[in-house]
């Protein structure tokens, strides 16, 4: 098991290398260069004009004018060796700091929606399978398909409107006010976060929940009539213990592997929700950075998300191996 994990960790190094090249090429793709764009912006907005010397200094820092491989080496070298993600021209902050501020909340929201998805989808999926074609099965199937069919951003908008008209509260953001968001972490801040975070968690989780219910139902239905279930029943196990110990355990694999797609799903797919709900997460920031040629911030976010996807894939693989001896033994 340990060698398996070590081997997987080693594999991650070349994968990460390839990803970093791809990310670098991606942020180089848009026409124009970020320094020229920033200088132009500054001149238009604040009338500030940089001297030739300043421009040269900036170009030297980020290696503009150098050939691409040299630029890449500088960029990745700074990240790996010094944790320096470069400068966000748009936010006028170190890119690393912007990312670090957003990452904990992003992870919290993803984990929260994931847990919501599990808590809802698992029991409903099991129920729909065990009581196949019952009224409960049809009702949940119906709700599930509706959940699957409604785009998340629409659900978010509906909730926002409902919140404002019926409950007279705003469901946007993750905190009550900007002051609280800026304040250092405290119990009061966490409580404030929890009060706001459930809405985006539910919104983001709904689509996934519906899908997962269908997966759970189908998997469990496959397992329920396998011979090993009959063997267990012939032993005299009660139906509940039998269900949990045998078919449910066999049907769990897709649930666990879903864990790996958590982060990219959230950041890429749910950016629209985050924009609608004004969430301080990586998704909207990534979009803005790409729109504004804020290459170092965008590149940094892409790189980190790829890295965390690799980590969560590894985690879910370890979990799968722990759960299923057939994977452990390589069958």
């Amino acid at each position: 098991m340990l060698t398996y994990i070590l081997r997987r960790l080693l594999y991650m190094i070349p994968v990460m290398f390839i990803i970093s090249i791809l990310v670098f090429l991606t942020i180089q793709l848009p026409p124009g260069d970020p320094i020229t764009k920033m200088i132009e912006n500054q001149r238009l907005q604040q009338g500030r004009v940089f001297s030739e010397k300043d421009i040269e200094m900036m170009q030297a820092r980020f290696g503009y004018g150098d050939p691409l491989p040299v630029q890449y080496t500088k960029w990745i070298g700074n990240i790996v060796l010094r944790g320096d993600f470069g400068y966000s021209f748009y936010k006028r902050e170190e890119a690393g700091k912007v990312i670090a501020d957003l990452m904990p909340l992003t992870i919290a929201i993803s984990l929260g929606s994931f847990i919501f998805t599990w808590i809802v989808a698992l029991p409903i999926g099991v129920l729909s399978a065990v009581r196949q074609y019952s009224i409960a099965d049809y009702v949940f199937t119906f709700i599930g398909f509706i959940g699957l069919a409604i785009p998340n951003f629409l659900l978010a908008l509906i909730l926002l409107v409902l919140g404002l008209t019926t409950f007279h509260t705003s469901f946007t953001g993750l905190f009550s006010s900007a002051e609280i968001q800026q304040a250092p972490w405290s119990l009061a801040k966490v409580w404030d976060l929890l009060k706001h975070a459930w809405v985006p968690m539910v919104v983001i989780g709904t689509g996934g929940t519906a899908g997962l219910i269908r997966i759970m139902r189908a998997n469990l239905l496959d397992e329920l009539h396998k011979p090993y279930v009959e063997t267990a029943r012939a032993k005299g196990l009660s139906e509940m213990r039998l269900l949990v110990k045998y078919p449910l355990r066999h049907a769990m694999n897709p649930f666990v592997s879903g864990f790996a797609y958590l982060l990219p799903y959230l950041v890429a797919g749910e950016a629209i929700v985050a924009i609608v709900m004004n969430l301080p997460t990586e998704g909207p920031t990534l979009l803005n950075s790409l729109l504004n040629l804020d290459v170092y911030l965008g590149g940094g976010i892409l790189l980190l998300i790829s890295f965390m996807t690799l980590i969560s894939t590894l985690l879910s693989d370890i979990l799968l191996a722990w759960l299923d001896p057939r994977i452990r033994y390589g069958n």
Partner: peptide
Amino acid sequence: IRGKEIAMIFQEPMTSFSSM
């Protein structure tokens, strides 16, 4: 009664045990 007074052996030894 099952498993204690009346026990059963099944046809498929491959799938009659759970692989978990």
